[in-house]
Structure formats: C-alpha cells, structure tokens
C-alpha cells in the first residue's frame, strides 16, 4: 500500500463515519460537529485529487462559515435535541426507504463501473499555475466562466435580501408582537418556579 492509498482509506473512513453519525445523532449540535468532521476529511481527499484551492475553500467556507451559520441558528432556536419530533415512521415505511436508497446506491455503482476514464497524468505541484492551484482556477473563473461567476454574485445578493425578508417579523413593534413578548414575560416566572 502506498502512502496515497493509506491517506485515502483513512480519509474515506472518517468522511463516511462523520456522515453516518450526523444522521444518527438526536442533538443537532452534535450533528453539525460530525458533518464538519466529514467535510474536513473530504477536503483532504480534494487536496489529494489536486484540487488545492477548492479543498481549502471547502474548509474555510463550508466547514467554517456555513456550518457556523447552522450552529448559530440551532443556538438561536434553542434546540437541545429534546424536542418533540413526533412518532418515528413505521417499520414498513422505514424499510422501503432503505431499500430505495440501496437500489439507488447499487445503480450509482453500476454507473461508475461503466465509466471508462483514461489514466490520470501525474500531478505537478511545485509551480504557481499547476493543476488546481489558486492561479489556475482563477484564470478559468475570470475568463471562461466569467459570466456564470457574475451571476453567482447576483444570486448571493438575492439570497441575502430573501433571507432578510423571510426571517423578518411582519410588523415589528405592533400589537401582536407586543402581546407575544408580554406572554413570554408572563411565562418566565412559571418556568422559574418549575425549576
């Protein structure tokens, strides 16, 4: 086994483990942390595949920023994993879902086996414009894909505005809001007495 294979196996196991644990957790905070673990393992594989820039982006933007956003929301909603999530689905329905996923997975493997790819050339990593480097990706991004890149900027703007509009309270400071605040105030002592 070469060092490449060792790195791949370890990273792959960690990534799959993180993903599986994320689903299995009841506490959403733990889920987020497992997902971050999985993402970092994936980033290692990215780098191994020569995608240096994208791998770093994955760690910084995904594992860093977006996951923190998730955490932030979980904190904001004050979720501790003890929420009432209703009855779990029945055994039959659960079984069906597993079967569907399994079939899907088998199909994917079938497709992958059918793909004939040429042997990848060796990686050259000691040059500034090597495969997957910041410079090389940026060259593509700002020339061939300039237009889609610009559009993502517009998309981000729309997302920001949309998020603000959606999450905003309808009429801040008006009567329903005030009554809601009063009711929470009124409830607070009760909780205190309970505690």
């Amino acid at each position: 086994m070469t060092i490449d294979a060792v790195i791949f196996v370890i990273s792959a196991v960690v990534a799959i483990f993180g993903a599986a644990m994320m689903i299995a957790q009841r506490n959403p905070v733990a889920s987020v942390l497992y997902l971050i673990l999985s993402l970092i393992a994936q980033a290692v594989i990215y780098v191994q595949l020569g995608a240096l820039f994208v791998g770093i982006m994955l760690v910084i933007v995904y594992a860093g920023a977006i996951m923190v956003l998730f955490l932030f929301v979980i904190m904001l909603l004050n979720l501790r994993g003890s929420e009432e999530l209703g009855k779990p689905s029945g055994r039959v329905s659960r079984f069906t879902k597993y079967v569907i996923t399994l079939l899907f997975f088998v199909e994917l493997i079938f497709v992958i086996r059918g793909v004939a790819l040429p042997p990848a050339p060796e990686l050259v990593t000691n040059q500034p414009d090597a495969f997957g480097s910041v410079k090389a990706v940026s060259m593509l991004l700002f020339t061939k894909y300039l237009y889609p890149f610009q559009l993502t900027g517009v998309l981000m703007l729309i997302a920001v505005v949309g998020a603000v509009v959606i999450a905003r309270r309808e009429h801040p400071g008006e009567l329903p809001d005030d009554t809601a605040a009063e009711s929470t105030l009124a409830e607070t002592p009760k909780e205190g007495t309970k505690a």
Binding site: S93, T96, K97, I100, T101, L103, F104, E107, L108, F110, V111
Partner: peptide, 16 residues
Amino acid sequence: ATLFAAGVVLVIGFLI
C-alpha cells in the same frame, strides 16, 4: 422526498 427518490431510481434504472 421518498417518492422523488423512487422516481430517480426508476429513471436511472431505465437508463441503465
């Protein structure tokens, strides 16, 4: 989502 996934399975299966 389940129906959706089942549909995807069917489509890919058909294509294969």
